[in-house]
Amino acid sequence: MNALNSALYLATILIWGSTWLAITYQLGEVDPLVSVIYRMALASGLLFIWCWLRDIPLRISTRDHRFMAAQGCFLFGLNYWTIYWSEVYLPSGLVAVIFSLLVFFNIINGRIFLNHPVTLSTVVGGLIGLTGICMLFYPEFALLSHSESNSNPNGALIGFGLAFVAVIFASLGNIVATRNGNTGISVWAINAWSIFYGTAILALIALVTGAEFSYGSTLEYSLSLIYLSVFGTILAFGAYLKLLINIGPSRAGYTSLIIPFVAIILSTLFEDYQWTLLAAGGFMLVALGNYIVLKRR
């Protein structure tokens, strides 16, 4: 890889690997749903300004608007809401590892919606990855379930369920994004509209559920919000999409192998994530499962 692609690769890994920890600074004082709305509204606004400054066309057909809304709903709306919610119950690094199942769900949904083939190595890699997730998840579930100070003994199970649902939402969003990316519309315009629709859908949910639109009083909340909007949503997506163009999806997909390593190292340093031998073995199996799938593809 040349210097530019190496820089894009490194930026994608470090930014997305660190966003899992940054999300934890958005939790506690503000409803997770509202925090996601703030993040996406800021990102969408900045993207529309960027398109305007660069004369990137924003006019699209009614049919394309519907698909942008679908992408926004799954990829930038429901996906991030359930991720934030899952981190209320689980360490950020553990959620990042669970989210690496996205590789397998993309293949399954690619088969269902895009008629992409599924190979034997994909099935084997998926089974290895799922086994690793179970090994990694069990110590955390046992720890939270037997903690006398834990007011919700089912918290680990709830967190896992939310993270698992987030993966499904993200995969469906990726399928729609594949369709949108093949229209010839600028990626910046696609993301601007998609994030806008995702924000609008979440705002509607917030109004229906009666969520309180408060704002975090700490400096960490504001700084993490800016970081997640500008770096985690705009720049990381831009870097990764550029990487897809330059080196292809197969090689770019290997970022999903390294991102959980970054996330769980940060979780160990800043959230005091407690390692066990079983968890370490599970983490390595997840990485191996991803490698087997990506190696073949």
Rank of each mutant, 00 (worst) to 15 (best):
D272G: 12
A203R: 00
Y80F: 15
L243M: 14
M284T: 15
A163N: 10
G253E: 05
S61N: 11
A41M: 13
L266V: 01
V176Q: 01
E212C: 09
S92E: 11
A206N: 10
C51V: 07
G282I: 09
A211V: 04
T199M: 11
F141K: 09
L14P: 00
G110F: 09
T218P: 09
A200C: 12
V103R: 00
I49P: 10
M135T: 04
V230I: 15
I108V: 15
L202H: 00
A203D: 01
E148L: 10
G110C: 11
A11V: 03
L127D: 02
H65T: 03
F213Q: 09
S92G: 02
L46E: 04
F104H: 03
G210K: 10
R63I: 14
N180I: 00
C134K: 06
L47Y: 06
W193K: 01
A252V: 06
F99G: 06
T119K: 13
A3L: 12
F76R: 00
I83Q: 07
I175C: 03
A7V: 13
A163T: 03
I226P: 11
D272N: 15
F76K: 01
A7D: 03
L75N: 02
Y80L: 13
F48M: 03
G238C: 13
C51W: 00
S61Q: 11
S86P: 12
G238Q: 14
A263N: 12
V208K: 05
R296E: 14
N150T: 08
L8N: 09
L78C: 06
A252N: 01
P249N: 06
L47M: 15
L157P: 15
L235H: 03
G282C: 05
N174K: 07
I128L: 15
I264Q: 09
L157Q: 15
N152P: 02
F141C: 06
S121T: 14
T131E: 05
S121E: 13
L42Q: 00
Y138H: 07
N150E: 12
Y80P: 00
Y84H: 13
I175Q: 10
Y9S: 05
V103K: 00
L42N: 01
G155T: 07
L33P: 08
L21K: 02
L75S: 01
P153L: 14
I158S: 14
P249I: 11
